[in-house]
Each structure stands twice: as C-alpha cells, then as structure tokens.
C-alpha cells in the first residue's frame, strides 16, 4: 500500500503522524483514503479536481504536476511539498 508523507503543519489532522499508509492505486484514490483517516485533508490539497498549484507532489521521488488519476504503484511513497520556481 502507498505511504503518504505529510508536511509538518498538516500532521495534526492525522493525530501527529508523519506518514500514513493507505489503500489506493491512483493519486486520487490515495488522497481520498487519506482523507478518511485525516478528515479534511483532501480539500486542503485538491482544488477543482486538481492538486492546488501552490503544491507539488512527489511519487517515489519524482516531483511533478500530476492528475488525480496518476497511477500509484503499490508500496509507493508520496510526499507533499511546496511548489518552487527556478530562475
């Protein structure tokens, strides 16, 4: 099952956990499953069906702008981080 690593300020929604392992084979399924464990977190991360533009998601180390139907391999590690810009 995929594991989601949570940013520090979102952890209080998940009882202080730094990472939560949940079911799901797409990014959207994983985040919905996460929301059942940590109520309200889906809405925090997703706006209008997409990951908020201020945020980036890394799946197994690959940071990108993913759709919610992005396949997530079993055992994948997902991190949520601020989007950044280069010069």
């Amino acid at each position: 099952m995929p594991t989601v690593r949570l940013p520090a300020l979102f952890r209080e929604r998940c009882g202080g956990a730094t990472a939560v392992t949940v079911e799901g084979s797409t990014l959207g399924e994983v985040l919905l499953a996460l929301d059942r464990r940590c109520p309200g977190i889906f809405e925090l991360l997703v706006e209008g069906g997409s990951i908020r533009p201020e945020l980036a998601v890394a799946i197994d180390g690959e940071t990108g702008s993913y759709l919610l139907d992005e396949p997530v391999p079993p055992g994948a590690e997902i991190a949520i981080l601020p989007a950044i810009a280069g010069g």
Binding site: P7, R52, E54
Partner: peptide
C-alpha cells in the same frame, strides 16, 4: 495562509 492557501 499555509502552503495550501488555507487561512491560519
């Protein structure tokens, strides 16, 4: 706000 744009 936090990084998700939520007022804190």
């Amino acid at each position: 706000k936090n990084i998700a744009g939520q007022v804190v």
